[in-house]
């Protein structure tokens, strides 16, 4: 299976990556190679193998429902590009 240039553009857009037109053929080839690898693996019969959710064969540990965090928003906001009234500011996202 191989990708088209449009697939590459769509994947880049979904990942919010800006790529130059010149680089698209190279990405097209590299990503297609990865898919080729997946295709190769798909050829193996895995019908009696349970899908793996995690490479570690362990179970999730749970934490008690206790509030352990205190307010440090001033420190966090010191490194934010833009803050006002304790809100993080970003360019307007609705029209």
């Amino acid at each position: 299976m191989s990708l088209t240039q449009d697939d590459v553009k769509k994947i880049a857009h979904l990942a919010r990556l800006s790529i130059s037109e010149d680089d698209i053929p190279a990405y097209e080839k590299e990503l297609s190679n990865i898919l080729g690898l997946v295709e190769q693996m798909s050829a193996v019969d895995t019908s009696d193998v349970a899908p793996m959710a995690h490479p570690l064969d362990m179970v999730q540990r749970l934490r008690d429902d206790v509030v352990t965090e205190t307010d440090h928003h001033e420190q966090y906001q010191d490194i934010a590009p833009n803050v006002e009234n304790s809100l993080y500011l970003v360019p307007q996202v609705i029209e």
Partner: peptide, 30 residues
């Protein structure tokens, strides 16, 4: 382990995990 109480001043109950800082890990609430 940040509080879920409603109505607190903005961003006072958002810790590094909630902010999605690099290197933090989620731990599920029992």
């Amino acid at each position: 382990g940040a509080s879920t109480a409603y109505g607190a001043p903005a961003n006072t109950q958002a810790c590094v995990v909630d902010l999605g800082m690099p290197g933090v890990l989620p731990v599920l609430n029992h």
